[in-house]
Write a protein that binds this DNA or RNA. Structure first.
Lengths: 341, 341
DNA sequence: TCATTTAGTGTAATCGTTTTAGAAATTGCT
DNA sequence: AGCAATTTCTAAAACGATTACACTAAATGA
């Protein structure tokens, strides 16, 4: 079997507890003993057993990442690798490991996360989404598990630490940009209504129209999956309208890609025939044809800040609730043009 | 504190060991007792403590993912989310959780993985890369830890289970495609020479040239990072040559993107002035301007198969060594054209 | 009928740490 | 020198499961 703390203790002629304290670098152990013990550890090639340590100390130094759907699906959208990059950076800085939820349906994810936490596999979790009436979020709150959410919680916002953008303003600005270019028929292509990002952005869009005195049209509002296919579907539907929009606010770059695809198939040109403002400013926005004007929401930073907050919360359960708003900025490229009759 | 196996035992009027056996669904427990125990578990809201279970059973049901560099960097390349998707699917099927290494420099990653394994945090690991003389791989082998590598091991290939493409042939075919189009000055843009993918692909490229009777030129061989910047660097250098190439084999889509960028800045056009065959066939290849002819290496499947093999190996330490070659296929788009003098 | 299986549970050791409570050794002070 | 205070270390009890072994009662067989 493996080298344990007892072997080290024997070799160094001290008690196991002393070795444990040397590992923790307790000030209650003399330098002399520490040297002796460390020497023994080196000689034996000792590595602490995290599992045993976790069991005794009731902490794992692991953070759980919870995706909105199966990683298998979510990871198709570059948003997720990018948040994870931010999470990874912060986790690494504080010596936390990362564990990913793997579940397919909502119920399965819920069970998985509950097991993760009740099974004490992780010290806390980061929700990479926020949806209306989320069973999981309620559970986490009720059981006082440390967690933070990326996005705006549906309920009890003031009781839940979260990191978000000002999606209302961001979408409003996006729509205003199009309005300033003279567009009057502007559609909104977003994700499922149960996600708060979608709701917030829709409201922002709506507010911009209202302020500009433009009508809000139900048939200009699309809700689809955050994937290319979603964008395609939405665009097809919009084009089937009697008076299709001349501009779009699209809530995600990958969706925007689908929009472009459909437009291309239909022989319509961007920005000549239709203008687009998208969200996320991932590499896709830069690369698409034409490059998309996109709202940069600083995804990396969302992940980074969320993780830092979570770790603080884990370290100190009384840490006050925080609400962190990451700034956004609209990056203008070549998918928007003046509206010409 | 939490509900433990003892609480359940008390409630059901049985011994803790019986409860444990019910959890494991042991055939040695009568149906009647099982029902009684399950009832008690439900009533108390019992969740098994994974950590305690892991300690006792010496297994965690967690797989470690090892990236070549900091996740923070690696995840910029769509290759990684895509392998992870495959890994995630297989892991989920077999009820394994995933843990990611977070380390920056090579040495730090090494330490991290050693700790992961020695600390018994994971039952095995998947290396998402293969490099020459890899300290970590040697360590894993020496200590008989279950692991599989995605890529071709540098040494003792026949002793290490790995999942790879036939990179030699893939690159050869890529180059041949260009040769068939009449190109004679074909450059190779790959990653660092320490990675075996790079080496294999370079050899394939070389073989194609040789068979076609074309000269192999050192100054046409570029080794850069698997990022856009790498492609840019390479292309700049190639363009500074007295007789720059008319076609390129680029070992990665993201790099190819960098190549395109530089080409665009220099006012050169693809495929009119330069033809390109790239690798990975990620979304980027489809989206770039022009869309890239790219070798699809079925990244998802690499991850999926690797994970299945690893889990088999964990379940049965005597599982024979496997070598799985995932087929590739060249997807033709619009980055290649006939060579015109 | 009594020894022998077999089925179903229980007892207790074990996994490798952390940590509380307290013993032993050292130091300081008068 | 004697005693309190301080420093340094140890013994032993958690932590929450798994599992080898023991045991009892019922079933089987000669």
């Amino acid at each position: 079997m493996n080298v344990t703390i007892k072997d080290v203790a024997k070799r160094a002629n001290v008690a196991p507890s002393t070795v444990s304290r040397v590992i923790a670098d307790s000030p209650r152990i003399s330098e002399k003993t520490k040297r002796k013990v460390r020497q023994a550890m080196k000689e034996l090639g000792y590595h602490p057993n995290f599992i045993a340590r976790s069991l005794a100390s009731q902490a794992t130094q692991v953070i759980g990442i919870v995706m909105p759907s199966a990683a298998e699906q979510a990871l198709q959208n570059p948003f997720f690798p990018e948040v994870i990059r931010g999470i990874s950076k912060a986790a690494h800085e504080k010596k936390y490991a990362l564990q990913m939820s793997t579940g397919e349906k909502e119920e399965e994810i819920y069970e998985g996360v509950v097991d993760m936490l009740q099974g004490r596999r992780v010290d806390g979790v980061i929700l990479l989404y926020s949806r209306i009436n989320d069973k999981l979020m309620k559970y986490l709150q009720k059981n006082k598990f440390p967690f933070v959410v990326i996005g705006k919680p549906h309920q009890k916002e003031e009781q839940i630490t979260h990191v978000d953008n000002d999606n209302y303003r961001a979408a409003k600005e996006a729509a205003q940009h199009l309005i300033e270019l003279g567009h009057e028929r502007i559609a909104f292509v977003g994700g499922n209504k149960k996600y708060l990002v979608t709701v917030d952005r829709l409201h922002g869009y709506e507010a911009a129209l209202k302020e500009a005195g433009l009508p809000y049209r139900e048939d200009y509002i699309m809700h689809e999956e955050f994937l290319q296919e979603g964008g395609q579907e939405a665009m097809k539907e919009l084009l089937s309208l009697a008076d299709p929009p001349t501009a779009l606010v699209v809530a995600d770059d990958l969706m925007a890609l689908g929009v472009l695809k459909t437009l291309d198939e239909m022989g319509l040109r961007v920005p000549d025939d239709i203008s687009i403002v998208s969200f996320n400013n991932t590499l896709l926005a830069e690369m698409s044809r034409p490059p998309l004007t996109s709202v940069d929401i600083h995804i990396f930073q969302l992940g980074y800040e969320a993780t830092k907050s979570l770790i603080e919360k884990i370290a100190n359960p009384n840490e006050p609730v925080k609400r962190i708003i990451i700034p956004h900025r609209i990056v203008k490229r070549f998918s928007c043009d003046y509206y010409r009759k």
